Amino acid sequence: MSSDHKLYAYLHDEILPLDSAYLHVSDLAIQRGYGIFDFFKTHQGQPLFLNDYLTRFYASALLMGLEVPLSEEELTSVLTRLIQMNGLTDSGVKMILTGGYSENGYNPGPPNLIILEQPLTLPSEAQLATGIKVITHEYVRELAAAKTINYSMGIRLIQQVKAKAADDVLYHQQGVVSEFPRSNFFLVTKDNILRTPAQEILKGVTRKNVLELAAKKYKVEEGTVTLEDIARAKEAFMTSTTKRVLPIVAVDGQPIGDGKPGAVSLDLLQDLIQLEEAQLEKL
């Protein structure tokens, strides 16, 4: 995208230039970090799996006691207009719902809805060929089923991740694995069973799609996954909107399987790409 490409955002019932979109400092997103969001991607200017993301957005708002000021039909219309105005081929669209302007910095006000769109970069061929390394950290997100804007722990651990020459951090509690700050976790056992955590996680849309794709070829299990399970696994990977299926080759410095991206992981990545292409054909 050229540096002079003008982007637009949605705020306060209008679409306006991105550099003119501001919140007042009294918003609870600023004062207390209170709010929710969701994020989907577009390809060829079309949103992928939008209904799933909208369903989760409204569910997160309900869990946090926030009311989305637009109906799903109205929000879809705004998203369509914004995507058309920005004219990006491949992008990520973020919908943010804040706690609103607060008179005392604690009590919520009418929520503010913000929609942003930016160019999107997917994992490179080099990343897919080599896989990524992760570390672990004992932590469970509060209200994990809601996609809140609170990423304090993940952000605080960035320097620790870098110091250990890793790419991300996997949360666990007393050895029971949950999720990454922005992705879901899968492993593949030596007999090609796919296993993924079921508790204390945000159920990702890509996770859902991969589970459905995998069930056509492999045995799939949602349940308890431990650090010991990871140590015995043949493969591991993460899933997310922006990462798709990204192989993990080491956890806490210990290789997974042969320390290379596995065949099952890469096979599911191709299945997911084909599903995305099929989704586009329907739009």
Score class of each variant (00 low, 15 high):
A144M: 10
G109Y: 14
T136G: 12
Y34E: 12
A250T: 04
Y101C: 11
G154I: 14
R195F: 00
K94N: 12
I83Y: 08
D229W: 00
L7D: 00
I256G: 08
L23P: 01
G204Q: 04
I114H: 04
N184Q: 08
Q159R: 14
G105H: 13
K219N: 12
K234W: 08
P17M: 06
Q159M: 07
G131C: 12
L280Y: 09
I155N: 03
Q279C: 12
H24V: 12
M153N: 11
L194C: 10
I96R: 11
N104V: 08
E281K: 15
I83K: 08
E74W: 10
L88C: 05
A165Q: 13
L227W: 00
P261Y: 02
P111I: 09
T55R: 15
T189W: 02
L50I: 08
L269V: 02
E73H: 14
V134D: 03
G35E: 11
N209Q: 15
D19S: 06
L11G: 03
V68S: 05
L23H: 07
V161G: 11
E138H: 05
G259W: 08
T189Q: 03
I36G: 03
G33A: 06
V134R: 02
K260N: 11
Y34C: 01
P17W: 12
R195V: 06
A126Y: 04
E67Y: 00
L79P: 02
L202H: 07
L48S: 04
K190Y: 00
F49K: 07
P110F: 01
V161S: 01
M95V: 14
